[in-house]
């Protein structure tokens, strides 16, 4: 389980990317916990999309949990 910050945007995207990369390397399944997350931007969305593709290649899995209705709507617009 990887707890995601309140906001993920271009300002903190590098640390999010690195954390997700590390998680993906060591875990067979990464669950992104969006319980406290109120907003993500395009940079976060594309990191998650790319990570999901990578996980599929590695026979691993990335899933999302705890997203609020607003976050779900945003994720849907981001193609997630």
């Amino acid at each position: 389980m990887m707890k995601v910050e309140t906001e993920v945007n271009v300002k903190n995207i590098r640390s999010f990317y690195t954390s997700l990369k590390n998680e993906l390397e060591k875990e067979s399944e990464v669950i992104l916990d969006l319980t406290d997350t109120v907003r993500i931007d395009s940079s976060a969305a594309q990191v998650i999309i790319s990570a999901m593709s990578r996980a599929a290649v590695l026979n691993k899995k990335i899933s999302i949990t705890g997203a609020s209705p607003e976050m779900k709507a945003l994720l849907s617009l981001a193609g997630l």
Partner: peptide
């Protein structure tokens, strides 16, 4: 309908997260 062109997003290893591919 809404489609995000995921092919434009580079492989995770090569991704520069501060650039936009959306």
């Amino acid at each position: 309908s809404l489609t995000v062109d995921k092919k434009r997003i580079p492989d995770f290893e090569k991704l520069d997260p501060e650039k936009c591919y959306m």
